[in-house]
Design a protein around this nucleic acid. Structure first.
Lengths: 146, 146
DNA sequence: GCGTAAACGTTATGCGCATAACGAACGCTG
DNA sequence: CAGCGTTCGTTATGCGCATAACGTTTACGC
């Protein structure tokens, strides 16, 4: 592969990551959230209560990160962490009413963010885009191939 | 816009960010680098010496981040930070010979990373992909519109 | 049924990012 | 030339991520 192409591609992905995250942070700040926390709330809103190991898998980040993030979201009153009587190792994470309300707020912001992101892209591209991004994600996901 | 589409899109971008960065970190670890540092070395290799403000602009991250990263890369012997006699506020950052060698190592790794990333994507898509990612980046870049 | 391996979660530490507040050097205007 | 806003960089602090090492609980093999 052409090294210049590779450089351009990797750099473009890096920049998109930084900017998309930064813009998300701007939108989430008024809700008192930091970038990354919204993913927890949205996942719980989609799937219902989960134990932290499942959250870790769904979010694509490691268990220690989940521990800290859930602690903070619990302190903010957005989620609830309860021990699982059936498995004393696990802790079940669930949205509070507060958290559910926040999740729908986030959904609105995310429509705004997505519209901003794909502005001026051809409609044909919009249809393929999520699949393409997903393919790239799984391509670089070390867990399956390693 | 469809909320489900927005959700899928934003989530796909977030996951790609995490995984692409994680994979980059795996590849850079043998060189003793952390993800993000490679961007500094590559930028200096492309453009020659820069002052930190220019680096900050090119990397898309804030001046305090640049201060810390350059300090660490200097401690590792990969770059040199010298005061600018013409402007006593500025500090000029340049690659050492060590850093130049490392930059070409990174280039090879980035070809690998890019090839992994776009595996199984149609050739027609490969041609458009960098432009699309760049468009999305500038779309969510707050500096121009805000 | 017991010992060992696996899974769940936590603590500790470190890096890349951010924002806020600050001092020092520059440049421009009165 | 004096004053003031701007630019450059730094320090302090905090969050989201990571890995490494650990204790606890569960599950599995013998």
């Amino acid at each position: 592969m052409d090294p210049e192409y590779a450089d351009a591609l990797n750099q473009a992905i890096r920049l998109l990551s930084l900017r998309h995250r930064a813009r998300a942070a701007q939108l989430l700040a008024p809700l008192g959230l930091h970038a990354g926390q919204e993913a927890v709330l949205l996942e719980l809103d989609r799937n219902g209560p989960l134990i932290q190991a499942q959250l870790s898998e769904a979010l694509g980040c490691e268990p220690p990160s989940v521990t800290l993030m859930t602690r903070k979201l619990e302190a903010s009153g957005h989620i609830r962490r309860t021990p699982n009587p059936a498995d004393k190792r696990a802790t079940v994470v669930a949205l509070t009413d507060n958290g559910k309300a926040l999740a729908s707020q986030i959904r609105k912001l995310w429509v705004t963010l997505a519209e901003e992101t794909v502005r001026d892209l051809p409609t044909a591209m919009l249809k393929q885009l999520p699949d393409i991004l997903h393919t790239m994600s799984t391509n670089v996901d070390g867990k399956s191939s390693a």
